[in-house]
Design a protein around this nucleic acid. Sequence first.
DNA 1: GACCAGGCACATC
DNA 2: GATGTGCATGGT
Length: 220
Amino acid sequence: MKTPLYKYYDQLIKKLGPQNWWPAETDFEVIIGAVLTQNTNWKNVEKAIGNLKKYNLLDPLKLLQIDSETLGELIKPSGYFNIKSKRLKNFLRWFNENYSLDIDKLKSQPLDNLREEILSISGIGKETADSILLYALSKLTFVVDAYTYRILTRHELVPYEIDYDGLKNEIESELPKDLKIYNEFHALLVNVGKNFCKKSEALCDKCPLNKFLEGKSPAI
DNA sequence: GACCAGGCACATC
DNA sequence: GATGTGCATGGT
């Protein structure tokens, strides 16, 4: 017997198909994107990452070496560029001092220790940390974000009072412990959040799955 | 011009 | 422990 959240995942993947996240060419690019997309439209992040690629700077050592002001200019399109420049520098210094800028060394660490370590970096909160862990390092941890909360509360799949850890635990306990499912479910929720379940709309009226979930139409 | 976008740290009560 | 605020560009 599948849980309600697992059923919801099934409906989304059947309707929308695999999202094949994260949209990046390398694991390191995932990490940079995870910081740059904090409270920011992904299109703006793409412009910023495009600037880094243009100057061949999407590389841990090169980004560690350039000064914060130059980095800020390059990532300006993603917004909050001064603070994000510092946050990237914080990560890169930690990455260099503890793992010699070697992403394979990061991947070899156990999830719980690594999550604690990454969360201790100033500027890396829970969502950014979990995004890095899941999408760059292939660790089994679910990524909660504003879309996750909005969609699942509006569908009454979780209570409105739930917080980040509560939502994360609820989803992880109701889904199979499977990297592909964690990967796809989060990406599907972002898709639904962007295209159907918008903030300005009180209800997800346009969501193709809403009527089914309310039991008012046959299964899709 | 208002509102929104794949948060986070910090101040204040 | 909850709540408020600054950070900033670019699209709708």
